[in-house]
Design a protein around this nucleic acid. Structure first.
Lengths: 343, 343
DNA sequence: ATGAAAGCGCTAACAA
DNA sequence: TTGTTAGCGCTTTCAT
């Protein structure tokens, strides 16, 4: 049986309250401090967090609610978050959704929140699927802090913090790179017209074209829906045949792979026939000479910022202070490959 | 304030024990059952797991102790494990180590166990870095079940279960494929001579060569150490220059990438100059015509088996029965690419 | 600075 | 089957 503070109290002849106080960093007479420390050593005492939690109504866990673990972006963020939460003493209760179409992902996210609430997490870090934030109503009502990753939810802007990248700027940079190389027939592939990041990136893409006086053809702004890989592959190929672009921008890691496949299937060579800028580092280090230009998201910093904000909110909700919801916007960076040809 | 069983008791006029019994699936008179259900609905009652845990000495969390989240293999296993643990009502307390050399990884794994123990997990699923299992002594003494992934620990064979793949068979399959294509000058790259999976795969590789009467040149069995990427890249290139192999086998996802880079740097074309079989699906879908042959590990099944075994152990440690440590060996499968040329 | 005592919400004897 | 009661290990007033 593990030792309890009762054992420490007995061994030192002190009262429970004194032991408890010491453990929690309170002031204790030097000689008592020594006695307690000795006893803790001798009995190998560790506080029972469950008992403490019952009293304090905390659990020491932060729920990390993410989409299915299917790409490096999510993976790196998770790695960083759990690392930093741990440094602050928090455990990471991981909840990755099942893969599926938009609708499934949204629905499972509701269950996810129930599960995490039932487990009693102190806070939730979430890369949301429900972009209206319905799933966060209950946690918020219960006073459980929420930090968003990758997306903002306007309806909740005054109650939750967000860590996002400058999507508009990222897409703009990508487009600029292509424009600078002289391209005018550029097709941009975006993920989901109803998707926050998809919309923002399309926005930046269009902005850049406008600014440079490049005619914006709505036919060349392509939104592809959810996880219907089969279909989107077809759509990409169709679009390539139809537009015969000299350059393409893929605004997502998944789209980057699919676009590359489609290009190959349609007989486009990179960069001779078509220049490419991708996303999230897909194709930047294949061993075949071609290294894709890519917009790289600062995953470690995103995770880091999210964990830090969460810790802060948690500290605040314990002590005093005001938990101002904040928005951290981080820049994406351009990976310079060799997949762009001047024309 | 959330409702407690006390509230339910008051509202129904029943005793605490009856409510508790009902909640835990005990027999209750039909009319009482209805009353309780009604009250639960009305008061939106949810059991306080912390309080329950304090009493039952469980936490409902399984610690998932993994190396740094740096590749798809680990990612897919984590995805599956947390999915299945959840289905059994368990939360997943994720602990991914910091990246680093072997020594750092081993040391951080010790801290990891401390952390998880302190958080009070009911069981630990672990892809071990300390191949002697020192880090698992304490959990085992405390009666906390442990399930290993990817590696076995002989010293602990009678106390922990393992889920592994048939490493010997996988390497043998890879080598056979190369041998069948007529290759005799084959170099195999393995991860760490002191590494469990590295050794097993080398074993299978050598076995296959032997069986086919192919001379086994110890120069062509190359072990590369930890995370010193810079150096191992150099070593690979040296080896390629020295042996001028017509075929290579890379026994790890990381090695597959590095070997491909080295081949490119040394001017080997795949498959014209050299045939390649890799691991874990790296390079199987790059968009440039060459699709690497690869040994694919059944990640979902590995995760699934690990979670199932853990659930079983947990159930057993709660109730009766004997938690026989078991070893599940799953086969790897060959992905057929176009990176092998007959000679 | 310290100690006594109450109680967090639940489970599990034990009695009825 | 049901209710009473005694804790699980800790924190926290409130006296001292």
């Amino acid at each position: 049986m593990a030792a309890t503070i009762k054992d420490i109290a007995r061994r030192t002849g002190l009262g429970l309250a004194t032991i408890s106080k010491y453990i929690n960093g309170g002031n204790v007479l030097p000689k008592n401090r020594e006695a307690i420390e000795e006893a803790i050593q001798a009995l190998d005492f560790k506080v029972n967090e469950t008992a403490r939690n019952l009293k304090t109504r905390h659990t020491g866990y932060v729920g990390l609610l993410m989409p299915a673990l299917t790409n490096g972006f999510i993976m790196e963020i998770i790695q960083q978050i759990q690392l930093e939460l741990r440094a602050d003493g928090y455990g990471t209760a991981l909840y990755c959704a099942v893969p599926g179409d938009d609708d499934i992902r949204r629905r499972t996210e509701l269950e996810a929140v129930d599960f995490l609430l039932q487990k009693g997490v102190d806070g939730i870090i979430n890369l949301p699927q429900n972009e209206d934030g319905v799933h966060l109503q209950r946690p918020l009502e219960l006073g459980i802090p929420v930090t968003l990753i990758d997306k903002q939810i306007p309806e909740l802007a005054d109650r939750v913090s967000s860590v996002i990248i400058d999507n508009v700027g990222a897409a703009r940079t990508a487009a600029d790179e292509l424009l600078n190389a002289g391209h005018r027939n550029i097709v941009g592939f975006f993920h989901g017209e109803t998707n926050y990041t998809g919309r923002r990136r399309a926005e930046g893409f269009v902005d850049a074209l406008h600014e440079r006086g490049c005619p914006v053809d709505s036919d060349r702004i392509v939104f592809l829906g959810g996880a219907r890989e089969r279909t989107s592959q077809e759509l990409i190929r169709e679009k390539l045949r139809q537009c015969r672009p000299t350059a393409v921008f893929a605004a997502t890691s998944g789209l980057t792979s699919r676009v590359m496949e489609a290009l190959e299937a349609e007989g486009f060579r990179v960069p001779d026939d078509v220049s490419v800028v991708g996303f999230d580092g897909v194709g930047t280090e294949n061993g075949h000479g071609v290294k894709l230009y890519s917009m790289l998201q600062p995953t470690a910093q995103i995770g880091s910022a999210a964990a830090r904000i969460m810790s802060e909110q948690l500290r605040v909700s314990t002590g005093g202070g005001v938990p101002l919801p904040q928005v951290r916007t981080l820049p994406a960076t351009l990976f310079v490959g060799n997949s762009i040809k001047r024309v």
